[in-house]
Design a protein around this nucleic acid. Structure first.
Length: 467
DNA sequence: GATTGTTTAAACTTCT
DNA sequence: AGAAGTTTAAACAATC
């Protein structure tokens, strides 16, 4: 497998980008690591075929400041505002191409040009007409040889400079700063960059995190680590996980499909006590951004479809901002309720796996994380040997063994619960553009606003108002 | 009976 | 320290 990095634009500032790629065979991991690093502009090429990759900085572009840990992941420091093309290849040829701009993974279908600090993203032809009809912000700038590439979306320049955490880092604790809720916007931005969905303007540049120490490499989260390693709980809130799943499945999923997606993409949740599913349900019910849509009568199956309510997201975001600018409403939920209701009995069970853990923002790369082929999704109810959550007090004894889980075979879903991955395109095409701001809208909503400074919020507002 | 969905509440975490 | 957000646990109703 070859990793090819093409630096096609001038540099402005610095950021870190993490490349993840899998070896075809585990023992080839290091060998394939940076077999071919190429910088087009400077016509520099770095090649190695050794198993112990030793990057010679002399051959790297000046703006590439480091290239470390070339094993299962390849961390390279690359200038911000660069467009980076990554081609994943194996002996059979090209298997995938992705582009990265300011930490955003862009599908190869969406060719990107950079011009004077403005991103121009070419929108796939098949959604161009509907996009154009609903906004003036898109314009045709070129016709490409590829018929499906037709228009361009202007995206204001914005630099995301998110502290990233490396799971292997020795400095986890000190680096694990407030990467929680608010910042998962950025995650969503990437996650939701499914083909054919116009990428909204990325978030304004957050201020550097307070008390942040350590270099960027140390902060880089390898999302693949969480996909493959079930020992550590992924640093995403449940709301984030739900949005990740929905972002990959047209913002509309059944509960069981959400379970499935999470299990498929995070090994931890395959091994974990199934009480997390209770939390998922809790989040779906409690978070008003998740809206339940009952099945139609001609759609048999259990439960309804859960969707993201983007209007609600925006409404909530704005109200949160207003309240943050004034006085926080007094809230003493616990005290009030204690006076009204008797205390509950002590908890019988609490997982200690999350104790002390903090949620992290990541340079997420969900496309690398993997699109679960949900076509083969097997409804949970079919898995009798791997009992899902029933009642929590019964669940401990029902915990599935890991090997059982991993041998789990996915049969055809009989219930049509699963929303195929083709759904996103449909929904995007048919909905007005202001309904497509999923990423940014989600940001301000599900997340706390306290991670945003005034500049960010104002920019966000202006972007929203301009729609 | 199992799953889905709602609600309550305590514990925990993070931020101001 | 308090507010606000998140997670975990639990009870229970509705539905398939």
């Amino acid at each position: 497998m070859t990793l090819e990095v093409c630096n096609s634009m001038e540099t402005i500032e610095h950021c870190d980008i993490q490349f993840n790629f899998q070896a075809m065979e585990p023992d080839q991991e290091t060998e394939i690591a940076a077999e071919n690093l190429q910088n087009i502009n400077k016509e520099l090429m770095y090649q190695t075929s050794t198993t112990d990759v030793d990057i010679n900085m002399e051959y790297l572009p000046a703006d590439i400041q480091s290239c470390v840990e070339i094993e299962s992941s390849n961390v390279i420091s690359i200038s911000e505002n660069q467009i980076v093309e990554i081609q994943f290849q194996n002996e059979t040829g090209l298997i995938n191409t992705e582009y990265i701009v300011n930490n955003n993974i862009i599908e190869a279908d969406n060719i990107i040009n950079l011009k004077d600090g403005v991103y121009e993203k070419i929108i796939p032809y098949d959604i161009y007409d509907s996009v154009k009809s609903s906004t003036e912000s898109f314009e045709v700038i070129q016709q490409t040889e590829e018929p499906k590439l037709k228009s361009t979306e202007i995206i204001t320049q914005s630099i995301i400079n998110i502290p990233l955490l490396s799971p292997q880092s020795e400095n986890d604790e000190q680096n694990e700063t407030d990467l929680t809720s608010l910042t998962w916007l950025h995650n969503i931005t990437n996650i939701m960059s499914v083909p054919n969905i116009p990428t909204p303007p990325v978030s304004p540049t957050p201020k550097p995190k307070r008390k942040h120490t350590g270099n960027q490499e140390d902060l880089t989260i390898n999302i693949n680590y969480y996909k493959k390693n079930g020992d550590k709980k992924p640093p995403f809130s449940y709301a984030t996980l739900i949005c990740m799943a929905m972002g990959k499945n047209g913002n509309k999923m059944t509960l069981s499909a959400i379970y499935h997606w999470i299990r498929e993409n995070f090994l931890y949740y395959r091994k974990a006590h199934p009480s997390w599913q209770n939390s998922i349900r809790h989040n779906l019910s409690l978070n008003k951004c998740f809206v339940k849509h009952p099945r139609s009568k001609d759609q048999p199956g259990k439960g309804g479809f859960w969707k993201l309510d983007l209007e609600r997201l925006e409404e909530s975001r704005r109200s949160k901002r207003r309240s943050s600018l004034t006085v926080r409403s007094p809230r003493n939920r616990h005290a009030d309720q204690k006076t009204q209701k008797p205390l509950r009995k002590p908890k019988r069970y609490r997982s200690n796996q999350n104790t002390g853990e903090r949620k992290h923002n990541i340079l997420s790369n969900i496309s690398i994380c993997g699109d679960t082929d949900i076509d083969n999704f097997e409804d949970e109810k079919k898995k009798k040997e791997n009992k899902p959550e029933k009642r929590l007090q019964k669940e401990v004894s029902l915990l599935p063994k890991l090997d059982e889980v991993e041998d789990e075979s996915h049969k055809e879903d009989e219930t049509n619960d699963f929303v195929p991955s083709s759904m996103p395109n449909q929904s995007v095409v048919t909905e007005p553009v202001n309904q497509m701001l999923a990423e940014d809208e989600l940001t301000g909503l599900l997340l706390a606003t306290n991670g945003w400074d005034d500049c960010q919020l104002e920019l966000l507002d202006s972007l929203l108002d301009s729609l």
